[in-house]
């Protein structure tokens, strides 16, 4: 199997990584770059726990090959904070109590951040629609939706 040397920017820092053809972005983040905030829930595109920003758009990192990330910019949950300040959606998730076990939270934070970037004042149906691909087995979603509304200033 062939290996590929790629250059990728992750949370603002340029990385050079050697990856085999069959490695996913998810595995690269967790096992090559030690960014274990991004979770592996299903490795099949279903659960959204692995969601990261890929060139500004949310994507299931289990559905992208690491080699396809050559030249890309990735933001994971570890990169949401700026200047030691939590992103507003991180803060409102805490304030609203939008997590229990927390396994889904990194993916939800990324999907929510991406929604707010493309639509700063989303309606509740738009919030629900944007989070369809993020499963949570604990919270029942209500407080997660509250957190997104709070981050949007409602």
């Amino acid at each position: 199997m062939s290996f590929h040397r790629i250059t990728v920017t992750v949370n603002g820092s340029a990385e050079i990584v050697d990856v085999p053809s069959n490695m996913t972005m998810l595995t690269m983040l967790r096992e090559k770059l030690a960014l274990t905030g991004t979770k592996n829930g299903c490795a099949a595109g279903e659960c959204g726990a692995c969601t990261v920003l890929w060139n500004g758009e949310p994507v299931n990192s289990c559905m992208v090959l690491a080699v396809e990330c050559d030249g890309a910019e990735i933001v994971t949950v570890e990169g949401l904070m700026t200047d030691h300040q939590l992103d507003p959606i991180q803060q409102t998730m805490i304030d609203a109590g939008g997590m229990q076990c927390g396994f889904c939270t990194p993916g939800i934070l990324i999907s929510a951040r991406a929604l707010l970037d493309r639509k700063p004042k989303p309606t509740e149906p738009e919030i629900r629609d944007a989070l369809v691909g993020n499963l949570c087995r604990c919270t029942g979603y209500t407080r997660i939706i509250d957190a997104v509304k709070m981050a949007a200033g409602d």
């Binding site: 199997m1 062939s2 085999p20 053809s21 069959n22 490795a43 080699v67």
Partner: peptide
């Protein structure tokens, strides 16, 4: 230990 199987081996072209 991986909870889910990874992709089988192949060459990316």
């Amino acid at each position: 230990i991986t909870a889910h199987p990874g992709l089988p081996e192949f060459d990316y072209i």
